[in-house]
């Protein structure tokens, strides 16, 4: 078996084990939280009879361990169950939400990843001169401001004052054409780009600068190559591994960490879906969301590991 395949198998099985622990943790967490789903649904209008009726119907009177095992049994067979609150099938409702989140993440990534790497290269090319300082300054400033504040600021200026873009994503419909959808999500994409740009840009810059100290770069310089060509052809390929790591971390953030942005811009993604169900103590849905988020995180990290191995000949052909 080639080392890459063995590594893949190892990582995937470890990932599955991790997912199992994650599900136990989430379940325990939702049990510890005060109140239960029956109380959360009925809210202030809960009377003891209504509460008792609802609890019995939802099977909340079974011991927690029994409920967890029943859920686990379903998941192993690919059945995520139904929501306690709305009675809808979790797989299909969550599926459409996940699709929306991935749509937003895709466009944010499509813009921010190439932009971050290009700005990183540019910063190295003009190291310590004004373009470098300007890029660093702007991106650091945008990562330092809390994302909801950036969101409100762009919403106020671009959405309300100048009316260039839609202030909220309420016009987003999954069945609309791509242009309408893009029109609706322009502001969230902009904010997400601002938030994740700095991290990736700084890492690209640092990784390349690290390589730039090497002797072979000096050789390339002495050969008379242009600065940009040296960076692109010689320095960048050798700094891919750390850059990919950071890119993957940020992509994971785009899927699992955009709760605030989704809520602020009223975007029907996983974030709002999860928040609603946590506050209603809808355990099966929270479990399912937790699993998806954990899987995305573990999966992207797996990709990062594999890419850094494949791009490094020393790891690709171990002695």
């Amino acid at each position: 078996m080639s080392p890459v395949v063995r590594l893949l198998a190892q990582r995937i099985s470890l990932g599955l084990l991790l997912l199992f622990f994650v599900s136990v943790l989430i379940f325990a967490g939702t049990i510890i939280l005060p109140g239960d789903v029956a109380q959360a649904i009925l809210g202030q209008s809960a009377t003891p009879e209504a509460l008792a009726n609802l609890r019995r119907d939802m099977g909340l009177n079974d011991p927690p361990l029994q409920r967890y095992l029943a859920w686990l049994g379903g998941v192993v067979q690919g059945d995520l169950g139904t929501s306690l609150t709305s009675g809808q099938d979790i797989a299909s409702t969550m599926g459409s939400r996940l699709e929306n989140t991935l749509f937003l993440a895709f466009w944010a990534a499509l813009i921010s990843v190439p932009l971050a790497i290009f700005l990183g290269l540019l910063a190295v090319r003009f190291r310590d001169r004004w373009p470098d300082k300007l890029i660093s300054g702007v991106t650091l400033a945008s990562i330092s401001v809390p994302e909801f504040l950036i969101a409100y600021v762009v919403m106020f200026f671009l959405g309300v004052q100048f009316r260039w873009l839609n202030p909220t994503a309420v016009g987003f419909r999954p069945d609309a054409d791509v242009l309408t959808k893009l029109d609706a999500i322009a502001l969230p994409v902009l904010v997400l780009t601002l938030v994740i740009l700095a991290h990736m840009m700084r890492m690209t810059r640092a990784a390349i600068l690290n390589v730039m100290q090497s002797a072979y770069i000096e050789t390339a310089e002495l050969k008379g190559l242009t600065m940009f060509k040296i960076i692109w052809r010689h320095a960048f390929p050798n700094s891919i591994a750390p850059v990919v790591n950071v890119v993957m971390l940020n992509l994971a953030y785009l899927v699992v960490g955009v709760v605030v942005i989704e809520v602020v811009f009223v975007y029907p993604g996983m974030g709002q879906y999860l928040v609603d169900h946590v506050s209603k103590r809808d355990v099966p849905v929270v479990q399912a969301c937790g699993l998806v988020f954990a899987a995305v995180y573990i999966g992207l990290n797996l990709v990062a590991d594999i890419v850094s191995i494949l791009t490094n000949p020393r790891l690709r052909h171990p002695k």
Binding site: Y152, M155, F156, G159, V160, R163, N166, P167, T168, V170, G171, V263, V264, F265, V266
Partner: peptide, 19 residues
């Protein structure tokens, strides 16, 4: 009926004519 739970977003949507 559009659900806009965030106060700022709701006001912005009104001012810009989205709702």
């Amino acid at each position: 009926l559009l659900v806009i739970n965030d106060n700022t977003a709701r006001v912005a949507a009104l001012q810009s004519g989205q709702v």
